[in-house]
């Protein structure tokens, strides 16, 4: 499957959706503003050319969505003028343009040297995502002695960006230098280049996670489960969120209240007369949504080999 983003005018955009569905692809998200439609979708590799031709016919713009199907959290030390809207939101925008679903978090007490803390709530929220991107400051001493110690308990892939060039020993942390709380809008000079360094680090981290998944694949692809959920749970249509079923690399987030809909999700029929609980673990997220963690073949056995 190849993930792609279509951007174009609303005129005849449904031709793209029809084609993607006809060739056996999946629509991940569709957002429609007044003058622009953005569709993120997955198509089989051999049919990419057909979609390109169709996009050309209706004068749309098609590009590869390298981060589609990934849920990233961008963490800044605060929402004060020092960090937001620039560069915090500029970085988020860049990830979104690459197809990622990005959440934004400013820590309650992420600033300072001795006073910086990560609360249990923040930690739980961050750990629900595939990847966390942290923005730290300009002093090497501060980053080494305080900020990296603050995040050392997080057991997930992390990209840290800060100004000084330095080495970080922990294997789950990718360090990117040259970008910190400078009020840049990423338009002029070397600003774009600095932003690309962060995007590149995120892409490499995602690639590593995907390779790891190849060694021990998931029993069903998240994108398939998403389609089943959308077909079998009509309540999804009542959800006002732009991405009611959010794709993650090895799981799904369903933005419906856990208490009301957990049983419906657990009893969902998937391949070969099985229910979703055979293939995945359903749990409650910190904010009361439903998290579906898909099992690996080493745990549940192959569903397709029977």
């Amino acid at each position: 499957m190849e993930f792609m983003i279509y951007r174009g005018a609303p005129y005849k955009y449904d031709w793209v959706i029809d084609l993607v569905e006809d060739v056996g692809g999946f629509i991940i998200s569709k957002s429609m503003q007044t003058t622009e439609v953005v569709i993120i979708f997955a198509v089989p590799k051999e049919d990419v050319q057909k979609v390109e031709e169709m996009s050309g016919r209706i004068f749309g713009d098609l590009k590869s969505a390298l981060l589609a199907g990934t849920e990233i959290i961008m963490v800044s030390p605060s929402y004060s003028r020092h960090h937001a809207p620039m560069p915090h939101c500029g970085i988020i925008q860049n990830f979104r343009e690459n197809g990622a679903k990005v959440d934004s978090l400013a820590m309650a007490r992420g600033v300072g040297l001795e006073i910086c803390r990560m609360s249990a709530m923040e930690r739980a929220l961050i750990e629900e995502h595939d990847l966390a991107v942290f923005m730290f400051g300009s002093f090497e001493h501060c980053i080494k002695e305080y900020k990296l110690k603050m995040i050392e308990d997080l057991d997930m892939p992390i990209v840290v960006m800060a100004y000084p060039p330095m080495e970080v020993e922990k294997s789950n942390i990718t360090y990117v230098d040259g970008l910190t709380r400078i009020l840049m809008s990423f338009r002029k000079g070397d600003e774009q280049e600095r932003l690309n360094k962060v995007t590149q680090a995120v892409l490499e981290t995602v690639k590593k996670i995907k390779e790891e998944l190849k060694d021990d694949p998931l029993v069903v692809p998240p994108i398939y489960l998403k389609q089943e959920i959308e077909e079998q749970v009509p309540a999804i249509e009542t959800c006002l969120s732009p991405a009611p079923v959010t794709l993650k690399l090895d799981s799904l987030r369903i933005k419906l209240p856990y208490d009301t809909y957990a049983d419906d999700i657990k009893n969902l029929h998937i391949l070969n007369n099985r229910t979703l609980t055979d293939a995945a673990e359903v749990s409650q997220s910190y904010t009361g949504q439903i998290l579906v963690k898909i099992q690996r073949e080493s745990t549940a056995g192959s569903f397709f080999g029977e």
Partner: peptide, 20 residues
């Protein structure tokens, strides 16, 4: 004493002055 911080703050001040 941190020479990278000096570089960083030079840029931070430039951007803040442009903004204000």
């Amino acid at each position: 004493e941190d020479k990278h911080a000096v570089e960083a703050y030079r840029q931070i001040v430039d951007y803040v002055l442009n903004d204000m």
